[in-house]
């Protein structure tokens, strides 16, 4: 069975590392991983997003609209921007702290961050809001925002990997001098909602019913059988 993720935020917030950590966790389980990153001009404070597709059956590295199981948003406005990618029953983990665009600071455009959060609250059933200012205060730095959010995604149960798996990925990918900070950041949101998550990636045998329903909604394969005579 496949899981599609979107990580989005503002250039410079560290979405790429978070995406690499999830990919590393998936690799450790020998799952197929495809991904796409925003690299280039947008990294200078523009909107950026990572697409991540884990498990068999994906072709494109980009998650199609309406197919993301989880959106990890580093910024409320960016969460709303990427919401069309979310599945009807998908989850969103979102940092509550807005990043004001320069054009809004100088009064040329408007940005109402509260409206973004309200929109998420009224439209996303499985929503986890993360007070990253509070997390930064407890960590003593705002530098590990990406891993704080990853920890929240683990705790929400929607990521499909447990704390130990992400911790192993952090140990593999993060330089030694930042290791302690990142391990602390991973657990700062708690691990209380300890879902049984391994089921997300179980092999073919036990995935038939849910994956077929998903497939029926999103793919042409079942339609093709119905439509074939009209071709």
């Amino acid at each position: 069975m496949r899981r599609d993720f979107i990580l989005c935020g503002v250039g410079g917030q560290g979405t790429i590392l978070a995406s690499r950590l999830i990919a590393a966790a998936a690799m450790r389980r020998s799952l197929q991983v495809r991904a796409a990153e925003t690299i280039g001009m947008a990294q200078r404070g523009g909107s950026v997003c990572s697409h991540l597709r884990i498990g068999e059956g994906a072709h494109s590295p980009l998650v199609p609209k309406g197919c993301a199981d989880l959106i990890i948003a580093f910024e409320p406005g960016e969460a709303v921007r990427m919401l069309p990618y979310l599945k009807a029953d998908g989850a969103v983990v979102c940092a509550t702290r807005p990043v004001m665009p320069v054009s809004a600071s100088i009064g040329r455009t408007k940005y109402d961050a509260k409206a973004m959060l309200d929109h998420l609250k009224s439209n996303v059933l499985n929503l986890t809001l993360v007070d990253v200012d509070k997390a930064a205060e407890r960590l003593g730095t705002a530098k590990a925002l990406n891993v704080v959010l990853l920890g929240a995604a683990v705790a929400s149960g929607a990521l499909g990997f447990d704390v130990a798996e992400i911790e192993a990925a952090i140990r593999e990918k993060v330089p030694a001098k930042f290791l302690e900070l990142n391990l602390k950041a991973l657990r700062i949101c708690g691990t209380t909602r300890n879902h049984t998550t391994s089921g997300f990636f179980s092999t073919a045998s036990d995935t038939t019913s849910t994956s077929t329903q998903r497939c029926a909604k999103r793919s042409l394969a079942p339609l093709r059988r119905r439509m074939a005579p009209r071709l």
Binding site: V10, G11, M41, A42, Q43, R44, G45, G46, S47, K65, G66, C67, G77, V80, R81, L83, P84, L86, K87, A88, M100, P101, V102, S103, A104, T109, K110, Y111, D112, A115, M116, H119, S122, N123, R218
Partner: peptide, 16 residues
């Protein structure tokens, strides 16, 4: 995908 409900005005975020 089902059309998501109309979102509030999104922040304009060109690179800076």
């Amino acid at each position: 995908h089902s059309t998501p409900p109309e979102a509030p005005a999104l922040p304009v975020r060109p690179p800076v």
